[in-house]
């Protein structure tokens, strides 16, 4: 059985993070956005810096779990690049973009 939360949280150490989870109804990857909603696109994510901001974002994640919006909200490391955000771990990069072996199923990252 998977334990994605612990796996990812333990390795969180970059300066910037976003909070992600899978949507309850269909399992689709979503990110907490600035408006407090959940977007399918990584570039819509609310980027947090520092322990306090992360805590607040995680609290929003917990609330979304309780409200049956997402399953297992957890933080991931991201980096700002010229063309947008990039998830640092391979696993999260694949979650953001879709399976690397199916370009036809690639997910848009958003503007």
């Amino acid at each position: 059985m998977s334990a994605p939360i612990q796996k990812s949280a333990a390795k969180t150490r970059a300066a910037t993070q976003v909070v992600t989870g899978n949507r309850l109804t269909d399992g689709v990857v979503v990110y907490l956005d600035s408006a407090g909603g959940w977007s399918e696109r990584l570039n819509d994510a609310r980027v947090v810096e520092g322990a306090e901001a992360l805590e607040a974002a995680l609290a929003a994640g917990k609330a979304a779990e309780a409200a049956q919006v997402v399953v297992e909200a957890y933080p991931i490391d991201v980096k700002r690049e010229p063309d947008g955000l990039r998830a640092l771990r391979v696993r999260e990069d694949i979650r953001a973009r879709g399976p690397s072996v199916r370009v036809d199923l690639e997910r848009p990252l958003g503007a």
């Binding site: 998977s2 990857v29 399953v71 979650r95």
Partner: peptide, 8 residues
């Protein structure tokens, strides 16, 4: 039913 990276 599992929950995987991208979906169930």
């Amino acid at each position: 039913v599992y929950l995987q990276l991208h979906a169930y």
